[in-house]
Design a protein around this nucleic acid. Structure first.
Lengths: 146, 146
DNA sequence: GGAAGATCCTTGAATTAGTCAAACATTGCA
DNA sequence: TGCAATGTTTGACTAATTCAAGGATCTTCC
């Protein structure tokens, strides 16, 4: 089933395909994550915790664009799974930073691999299309950052 | 903040950019949807209900790749918002089909527009890049369907 | 025709995700 | 010192989702 709106510009058409592939990809990712015992939000949080760089919970809330109390809940779950732990912040006793455990570091690595796995539609493209796609998307990302 | 795994093939790299743009897009879409009083799952369901084509709830469950009881809950919310209603299925009294109301048809239209709106990174591309992107993604989608 | 099994939807109980408002501790400033 | 701002938590609530179980209706097959 494909749902398509009236198209206008190339960008609109591109976005419709983009969206369709994205939806499918997400489902595949969610399925793979569940084999690792993770949900998408948890995996997303895990991704943002870099090994050796404990992150204050408030900072995580900002990156996740969510309420601080939600981070409390996510942190609870990460801790209960033994993937991360709250650390006191030297110099500010209000702050608790989340740090990955050994298990967390390992699992995060698998999450990163899994999330960069090209989904079937992209994997099925010719290599030259894949390269062209990569270059265009890189430009898209970089224009915006710049 | 950008999180990147060790890259391998062009497809992997493409996927990383794809994913990044997709995450950002989703947030924007969720924000726009909430102005319409909709959540993402509700909007997704709305999208799958074509005007004039009531859809059995079981069929919706299949398209949404979710449990039938979840569709019951979604249908309840759509009905309580006056966007859809359950209809008896002529010929099989077990089946209830969801049909859009007038309001539902109208809102669905806005959802489709909103979801095909190119996000900033794609909108910022040159028109020729947009066209190339559209063509490649179309091939990706079509290869897979074929 | 009627029993057995399959299909469709709902209900109830549970977990996760998320918001908001209120509370608490700690910091930093005036 | 006193007070406002900041960081985290708690509690109450809604939404999304799954699973197991139940009730209604169909289908099949003797």
């Amino acid at each position: 089933m494909v749902v398509v709106a009236k198209t206008k510009t190339p960008a609109h058409e591109a976005q419709q395909f983009f969206f369709e592939i994205g939806m499918q990809t997400r489902q595949l990712v969610v399925a793979s994550l569940s084999e690792l015992g993770l949900t998408f939000p948890l995996a997303h949080a895990l991704r943002l915790l870099e090994p050796g760089h404990p992150r204050p919970m408030s900072e995580l809330a900002e990156l996740l664009v969510c309420d601080a109390s939600n981070v409390t809940a996510l942190a609870d779950r990460l801790e209960s799974k033994g993937l991360a732990e709250r650390q006191p912040h030297p110099g500010d006793r209000r702050v608790k930073a989340l740090a990955l455990t050994e298990d967390g570091i390992e699992l995060r690595e698998r999450v990163l691999e899994l999330m960069s796995e090209p989904p079937p539609p992209i994997a099925a493209l010719s290599v030259s299309d894949q390269r062209a796609l990569r270059d265009i998307l890189r430009r898209a990302v970089e224009i915006q950052r710049g």
